[in-house]
Design a binder for these strands. Structure first.
Lengths: 262, 262
DNA sequence: GAGTGGTCTAGACCACTGT
DNA sequence: CAGTGGTCTAGACCACTCC
């Protein structure tokens, strides 16, 4: 004997999967579902919550419950790293034309709004481990937000860390008024004589915290992808670490691994 | 004026973050929270649901609500692909010792239980596009489950597809009784003269469907990572596609991108 | 103002866990 | 059996959207 709210949810879910309720369609009003199933309102709402947690529907206060439309994804490729490295040595004129986000989204520089904030931080346990430095060592912390000009929510929340001692000889790297830096992080590192050898990226997924949901404008029923990017230089030192929080409902990541030939 | 259930959730969330409630601890009984906050039971339960959706707590019927313990992650590296390629040409004796999952988890072959099911499928729109073949073309579909011997839930749900015409000349590849195949997919492809050139992996994240939650034994408040792996051969043909569903709460993926030197 | 979803109550009864 | 969470009811009132 299945529970009442599951029966209601099953019926609606089936209608959505079968296409009887198409993306964007409004579901019957909650009070109508109450009549139709001869159940109480909280029971109907419990069923709708199930569907919301699965990302199938979206509630709009005062308007109704709607079948959710998939958002168009932003593709993030690991080819971007080589592309960024190649670009780092080009003349500034060239570098300022476009950045990695434009590379991913296919948008123009003018479509994007960029915001940066610089600060100081001390290495916590996990940063210290990944940098291979003692806990509490001084870091430069840079916080980035990039968004479409026409949308209010950013694509991603980015915290980037550099070891302060490594970059201290170029004071521009400690100055947020220099952002957006033409040529990106790899060009910044080049100014203090650092060449990158490889990039490691670690990926996790989980539901958003309330703060993340707020800032990325994530509806319930979505996930965030957590990406820690570690850049190693040619001496095998970790020289930069970025923690990136990406909305799972619009981000697609693509990694290409070349294999040696026989 | 914050909502009642948010106030209750905030207070508990704060206690968890501050460590006053440690992982594994039991929260006060729901009826006690009702008395403490002078609210009704559904309101208290609403607050607890918020925390559950954030993955912070776990409900155990008849026992209580508990602060969730993080599960130990399984690390999945893209180095596994080169490792598998190298292994594909080794003698069978060698190949049967260990597989890619053991490589990722650090476990022994005997710790793992392996299940495979073979069938036929027709290429849907997305598979046809990624294979570069017409929709409806015949594929071999292989469904895999791998789990720890001591746990009931598999690590991952895997559906692997091969173009039937490409592998028809080795009938063993159409026979599930030959699983687990020592040396894995790359060795299978070698038997029909295919060498891989590169692997592409596309990653998404979203909440689990009820079916996925059931099979992976995912509690509410977790995400799944969706991985589509496309193997290209040396003639730039897509020769194998795997769709992998991974539990977000225990899976960590690591990709290393080497960069060309200046 | 009519229609919709959002919050909340007070209480009943069921199902599971442990002693 | 006592203690706990799970399901459900019948109804009230609030807040938002759209006409």
């Amino acid at each position: 004997m299945a529970k009442a709210y599951e029966q209601i949810a099953d019926k609606l879910r089936e209608a959505i999967r079968a296409g009887q309720l198409a993306p964007g369609d409004r579901l019957p009003a909650e009070t109508d579902l109450v009549k139709e199933h001869r159940r109480s309102l909280p029971t109907v709402r419990e069923a709708l919550r199930l569907l919301q947690d699965e990302g199938l529907i979206e509630k709009q206060h005062g308007r109704g419950n709607f079948v959710r439309r998939p958002r168009t994804p932003v593709l993030r490729t690991n080819l971007r790293h080589q592309w960024e490295k190649d670009r780092a040595r080009e003349p500034e004129q060239q570098r300022s034309q476009t950045g990695a986000t434009e590379h991913d989204t296919g948008l123009q520089v003018n479509d994007l709004v960029f915001h940066a904030h610089y600060g100081e931080a001390k290495a916590d346990g996990s940063l210290a481990q990944d940098f291979g430095i003692p806990e509490g060592a001084a870091l430069v912390e840079r916080i980035y937000r990039t968004r479409y000009a026409v949308e209010s929510a950013p694509f991603a929340l980015v915290s980037s860390y550099l070891v302060r001692d490594l970059v201290a000889e170029n004071p521009d790297l400690l100055d947020e008024s220099k952002e957006p830096w033409p040529g990106g992080t790899q060009n910044q590192l080049l100014t203090v004589g650092i060449e990158l050898d490889r990039i490691e990226e670690r990926i996790n997924a989980r539901p958003p915290t309330p703060e993340e949901a707020e800032e990325l404008e994530l509806p319930p029923g979505t996930s965030v992808i957590l990406l820690r990017k570690i850049s190693y230089d040619t001496h095998n030192r970790a020289v930069e670490i970025s923690d990136v929080t990406l909305p799972g409902d619009r981000t697609e990541m693509l990694f290409t691994t070349p294999l040696e030939r026989w």
